[in-house]
Design a protein around this nucleic acid. Structure first.
Ligand SMILES: NC(=O)c1ccc[n+]([C@@H]2O[C@H](COP(=O)([O-])OP(=O)(O)OC[C@H]3O[C@@H](n4cnc5c(N)ncnc54)[C@H](O)[C@@H]3O)[C@@H](O)[C@H]2O)c1
Ligand SMILES: NC(=O)c1ccc[n+]([C@@H]2O[C@H](COP(=O)([O-])OP(=O)(O)OC[C@H]3O[C@@H](n4cnc5c(N)ncnc54)[C@H](O)[C@@H]3O)[C@@H](O)[C@H]2O)c1
Lengths: 215, 215
DNA sequence: CCGCCCTTGTGAAAGGTTTCACAAACCAAG
DNA sequence: CTTGGTTTGTGAAACCTTTCACAAGGGCGG
């Protein structure tokens, strides 16, 4: 049980948890692996295999207790607590994030925001005072933010990520379209919209080529 | 050559292309698979294998012609043209996207924007008139947008995606945290920030458990 | 033209993930 | 208590991706 778990398994666990919370709210008590599989596009065998890496949560013939599995998954994913985020770069995407209620609703609280723009420093965005970069280290140390968010221009993203890492965050979410290399075991996830669009471009071009050559 | 290409291969091809464009701008003429591999965290063998699915682009002993490979990858990925995007939902994330120069710079032009909010309809955001949903079909047909972008609240995301598909887009980029099922072969990519954060949460909790149980 | 060095392209091996298929377990009903 | 219907947990098989390792090819200096 529980060796190294793949990214795709963890991703699916999050999706299962989402559905389980909906079921919990709806008052459902038991759920089977096949019901659980449907919304994430997985198979029932995959659900069972994913869960089996962490233990044995179901009852044969009955399925999984919704409440029990919600708690188990929250523990596995580290979501039985909330996490504090420090945002760097309060521009277009940074402001959108600050105003995004979906983060706090799921236990991710933005507790500090930083920028270099003198015009922005000191002003408030969605109730949070924007601070100068100089205060990055002390403020992160003081408020204990665990996750750093990079929403600065691409050119400075690597530098900002390194600074966040030195300030003591345990993970980084990056919005700049650049592959940041993980240092000191601090995991980095990059949300790269252009990469997604290029993936779609490939698929559309490919299907065009396929149907095109058939004609 | 060229069977079904995996997502991860396509993703890496995009990263290679990024680097190649930088090299081109810098006037470099040839590049080896190992140089190409570095920024995307791949290995040189992987670069060669990825490219070999589409043909033979290098010269043994010499490497790849930067210009030649840029054009080859642009063709493979469908990036030797530009794509038109139709945005639905001009809220926080939608506005950030409209103002994001990085899209047009890479050949993705937002050519139409839609919303249901009467207060927003008719106003301009970053030079684009916001249109009522009623005009979705005719406008997409007229301007020929190929990619639909869903930036509406989660509850209506599935409905909006279906509407975009009916309006004739060939692919959808979705920002709502919900798994949309592909219909009629229209590929959908979802950018799910909360899922990324939960992945980081898992990694941090896991390393905590590991170091914790060793102590 | 020759020989040396370098790098590609690619089968084969290794490693990882998903699917299959079934025994084991549980519940409910009789 | 036994039977029947249901669903889990899991080895084994199938499938897919990455890495290895090397022959084949190309350029360059002499
Ligand atoms: N706008 C979008 O929709 C969007 C979408 C995807 C990705 N991105 C990426 O996100 C990043 C930010 O994009 P944006 O559109 O919000 O840009 P923006 O210019 O609106 O905002 C960038 C902010 O970062 C601040 N900044 C600059 N240098 C800094 C530094 N060294 N330290 C701290 N703060 C600094 C600026 O003052 C500004 O407030 C870019 O890398 C962009 O490619 C943006
Ligand atoms: N704000 C963020 O940073 C952020 C980040 C990640 C994901 N998201 C997701 O993106 C989506 C939009 O978030 P947001 O923060 O921009 O919300 P928002 O409320 O600011 O904007 C939503 C917009 O969609 C419009 N809308 C509502 N119903 C519509 C319909 N049926 N058709 C067309 N338009 C409609 C609204 O009028 C509004 O303008 C949500 O699903 C959210 O979970 C947002």
């Amino acid at each position: 049980m529980s060796g190294r778990i793949s990214d795709s398994t963890v991703r699916r666990l999050s999706l299962y948890l989402r559905m389980l919370r909906d079921l919990e709210r709806a008052g459902v008590e038991f759920v089977s692996s096949s019901q659980l599989a449907e919304p994430s596009g997985a198979t029932s065998a995959q659900v069972r295999k994913d869960l089996s890496h962490f233990g044995s949560f179901g009852k044969r013939g009955r399925g999984y207790s919704v409440d029990g599995l919600v708690r188990a998954l929250e523990n596995i994913l580290g979501l039985s607590r909330s996490w504090r985020l420090a945002l760097v770069g309060v521009g277009k995407i940074g402001s959108a994030l600050l105003g995004y209620g979906g983060l706090a609703a799921r236990g991710f609280d933005v507790v500090a925001a930083f920028d270099v723009d003198e015009a922005k420093i000191g002003t408030r965005a969605h109730g949070l005072r924007i601070r100068p970069m100089r205060e990055l280290r002390p403020v992160i140390a003081e408020c204990g933010a665990e996750i750093g968010v990079v929403a600065t221009p691409t050119e400075v993203a690597a530098e900002v990520a390194a600074e966040l890492e030195r300030a003591g965050v345990g993970a980084i979410l990056n919005f700049a379209p650049i592959e940041l290399s993980e240092v000191n075991g601090v995991p980095i996830r990059t949300v790269d919209i252009v990469l997604e669009l290029e993936g779609l471009s490939y698929l559309m071009s490919e299907s065009g080529r396929r149907t095109g050559s058939d004609a």
